[in-house]
């Protein structure tokens, strides 16, 4: 008698072996992905400098005589012109801050706010004050903290859209039109040098207090707040909606790149009443900043992180 045909036992659709295969796939994918990430991580500088053109022919202040007691600002100004005449990749901007001279006046912070028209909640260069010792033997230490323009900036590789990158002259910038506002770079900066623009204004809702209507609030924001700032050599007016850049973007100190491009020192260096902030090209062996970092005891912040800051502190 014929046995009725038994249906073949159904193979489990996804058994242990398949599971292991899947595991192998994970491993392979991880290796490929990891290699891609490391390659990208090591790629280093973005080769192209910003902007249509870079101003390279600035007057070298030939009429200003070099005096022994000349103000350091005059010297730095002259050196800036020399540096700007070089191709961008041959400049290496650094900042030197003499903490012995800093009096904690915050003039640099405020100068920066004014220059870059920073809205409330955005700051590029706060001066951190720290009390050292116990009363009566105390001292206050002032640490102005601009962006360190790290040689190895951890804020750059984390950006998912390449909106933040390091120029050949070492300044790390944010492309406001590309930034999606994820704030990953803010978490990655160990110096807390990036802040987010939350779209605040100084005058919205503030009483105008004028004439016959002393209680009237300023409508929208005061006109002066709508004037553009010129970061990255572009006019960024605060007239657009809540999502018009730089609102919603990560923002940071850029060594006043737009001022450098027209032959001016960063604002903080010029407003420092103690002449404690120096700026210049470290590739120029005769520059003031080179002199300062080679002849003094200098420190960088959080050196153990390997970011190699370009802001040096004389202590």
């Amino acid at each position: 008698m014929n046995e009725p045909e038994q249906p073949a036992p159904k193979k489990p659709s996804f058994d242990r072996r398949n599971f292991l295969r899947a595991g192998t796939l994970v491993g392979a994918a991880a290796i490929i992905g990891g290699t891609a990430i490391m390659r990208r991580r090591r790629a280093g500088l973005t080769p192209d400098p910003i902007g249509e053109e870079t101003i390279r022919e600035l007057p070298g202040l030939p009429d200003v005589p070099i005096a022994d007691d000349e103000d350091v600002l005059v010297r730095m100004q002259r050196e800036l012109a020399i540096a700007m005449a070089k191709p961008v990749e041959e400049r290496r901007w650094i900042m030197v801050i003499d903490t012995r001279k800093c009096v904690g006046c915050d003039a640099c912070t405020i100068g920066c706010v004014a220059e870059n028209k920073l809205p409330p909640g955005v700051v590029y260069r706060p001066v951190v004050k720290e009390e050292i010792g116990a009363f009566p033997n105390i001292q206050i230490k002032f640490t102005p903290r601009p962006c360190m323009q790290c040689e190895n900036p951890p804020c750059v590789p984390v950006c998912p859209v390449n909106a933040t990158w390091r120029r050949p002259d070492g300044i790390t910038i944010v492309d406001y039109d590309k930034c999606i506002g994820c704030r990953y770079c803010i978490t990655a900066c160990p110096y807390m040098a990036r802040t987010s623009d939350f779209g605040y204004s100084y005058t919205a809702g503030v009483a105008e207090g004028a004439g016959d209507a002393p209680d009237r609030a300023v409508e929208g924001t005061a006109p002066w707040e709508k004037l553009p700032n010129y970061e990255y050599a572009k006019a960024w007016a605060r007239t657009g909606g809540k999502k018009a850049s730089p609102k919603g973007n990560a923002r940071k100190c850029h060594f006043c790149l737009h001022r450098l491009e027209v032959g001016q020192l960063p604002m903080c260096a010029t407003t420092c009443i103690g002449r404690a902030t120096y700026f210049g090209d470290a590739n120029d062996p005769d520059s003031l900043v080179t002199e300062l970092i080679t002849k003094n005891r200098v420190q960088t912040l959080l050196p153990h992180l390997g970011t190699q800051p370009r802001v040096y502190y004389i202590v």
């Binding site: 891609a36 984390v158 506002g181 999502k243």
Partner: peptide
């Protein structure tokens, strides 16, 4: 909602930087 510029999220696809963990996540 967390993005400062949510309407630019498409950039993470078109101008992706695969050196960022966030790109991989997206």
């Amino acid at each position: 909602m967390d993005l400062g510029h949510p309407f630019r999220a498409w950039r993470a696809f078109v101008f992706a930087d695969f050196g960022s963990m966030m790109t991989w996540m997206i």
